[in-house]
Amino acid sequence: MHARVVAVAAAVVLGVAALLSPTSDARAGDVGETTVIAHRGASAYAPENTLASIDKAAQLGFSWVENDVQRTKDGELVVIHDDSLKRTTNVEQVFPGRAPWKVKDFTAAEIKRLDAGSWYSPAYTGTRVPTLKDYMRRIEHNHEKLLLEIKNPELYPGIEQQTLKLLGNEGWLDQKHLRRLIVQSFSADSIRTVHNLRPAITTAYLGSPTVTKLHEYARFTDLVNPSYAMLSMGYVSAVHSFDGPHGRPLRVFAWTVNDAATARRVAGYGVDGIITNKPDMVRTALRSN
């Protein structure tokens, strides 16, 4: 292993690209070998993390969408990015005395009362924060694929087990659906837990471990998903040189790319996927590259 790490480090220094293909299943929204993932749904065109945003992604021709999962006070899994309800709902008006309006301090019934669309546009007034159960059923209806982020797991002990139980109840842990599912987190411990509980699930770590640490992450994660600002061709090559827990080369999905020039540059590094609020723009940029 030591010799391999040294060789990988040399590849980073020299910027040598040993680019390997992602998994072979065809995906709507792919451009060449680069998968385009709609971040929080098509969130440039509809309120993020709502059913409307994944419907919009489907309308644009993209099957891969990304979301964020957190938990209510009474134990319901909901799809929302921030640990506070303040930015993307009207919680301040509905519950003015309950600052700082943390998701974990509200019941599912209370959150269901909130408007999660009017902050984005009057056209989306009345849009709700979806439960993960409702979200998965819409994903299934739309024939989409999901990059599911377990958000802030330190706030929600046991959320990994609960998420997997819900996915199983919704039929998403059979072989057919596992090809359409990736579970990711900024927490290495959370992803390690998911891998240990359900080794067949494809997992992703959000971040950019040092090259000398990649062999440790390769034991429990199939992808390393960094911010595009942290990437270089050498780093992508280094990630690709390790095999993950399923015996396939580690892959790289870069986030969050929202302009054409950056999309073309990052694709040139050899990434396997690009996560974006504007999937149609990225698709156009890569096709014209």
Rank of each mutant, 00 (worst) to 15 (best):
Gly61Glu: 11
Ala109Leu: 14
Asp115Glu: 11
Val69Ile: 13
Asp55Ser: 15
Ile54Tyr: 00
His81Pro: 07
Asp83Glu: 15
Arg71Asn: 04
His141Gln: 14
Ala108Val: 07
Thr107Val: 10
Glu66Asn: 15
Arg87Gln: 05
His141Glu: 14
Val36Thr: 01
Thr125His: 07
Asp74Gln: 09
Glu140Asp: 09
Asp68Ile: 14
Ala109Asn: 09
Glu92Cys: 13
Leu51Pro: 00
Phe106His: 07
Tyr135Ala: 09
Gly97Ser: 09
Ala57Ile: 08
Asn142Ile: 13
Asn142Trp: 01
Thr131Met: 13
Leu132Asn: 05
Ala109His: 02
Thr89Glu: 08
Ile37Thr: 03
Val94Glu: 08
Lys104Met: 14
Thr88Lys: 11
Tyr120Glu: 12
Trp119Ser: 05
Thr127Val: 13
Asp105Phe: 03
Lys112Leu: 10
Ser43Pro: 01
Thr89Cys: 07
Phe95Ala: 01
Gly97Tyr: 01
Ala38Arg: 07
Ile139Trp: 01
Phe95Tyr: 08
Ala38Val: 08
Trp101Leu: 12
Ala57Ser: 12
Ala116Leu: 13
Val91Asn: 04
Asp74His: 04
Glu66Thr: 11
Leu146Ile: 10
Arg138Tyr: 01
Lys104Arg: 14
Asp68Cys: 13
Glu144Asp: 05
Gly61Lys: 10
Arg87Ser: 07
Asn67Cys: 14
Lys86Cys: 02
Arg87Glu: 07
Val36Arg: 05
Tyr45Asn: 13
Asp68Arg: 14
His141Gly: 03
Ile80Gly: 02
His81Lys: 12
Phe106Cys: 06
Ser84Glu: 13
Trp64Gly: 02
Asn49Glu: 10
Arg137Leu: 15
Thr125Val: 09
His39Val: 06
Asn49Pro: 01
Ala44Asp: 14
Lys56Arg: 13
Ala116Arg: 12
Gln93Gly: 02
Val129Ser: 05
Ile37Ala: 01
Phe95Val: 03
Arg113Asp: 02
Asp115Tyr: 04
Asn67Met: 12
Arg113Gln: 12
Tyr124Phe: 13
Gly126Asp: 00
Ser121Arg: 06
Glu92Thr: 12
Lys104Ala: 13
Ile111Thr: 03
Thr125Trp: 04
Ala52Met: 09
Asp115Asn: 15
Asn90Thr: 06
Gly41Tyr: 00
Val78Arg: 11
Lys112Arg: 14
Gly75Gln: 09
Val103Asn: 02
Gly61His: 02
Gln59Tyr: 01
Val94His: 04
Ala46His: 08
Lys104Phe: 01
Gly97Leu: 12
Leu77Lys: 11
Gly61Asp: 12
Gly126Glu: 05
Val79Lys: 04
Leu146Lys: 05
Lys104Tyr: 02
Lys102His: 10
Pro122Asp: 03
Asn90Ser: 05
Lys133Arg: 15
Val36Gly: 00
Phe95Met: 01
Pro100Asp: 11
Val91Ala: 10
Thr88Pro: 02
His141Arg: 15
Asn67Lys: 13
Pro122Gln: 06
Ser43Met: 12
Ala44Met: 15
Val91Asp: 03
Arg71Met: 15
Pro130Gly: 05
Asp83Pro: 08
Gln59Asp: 07
Ser84Gln: 11
Val78Gln: 08
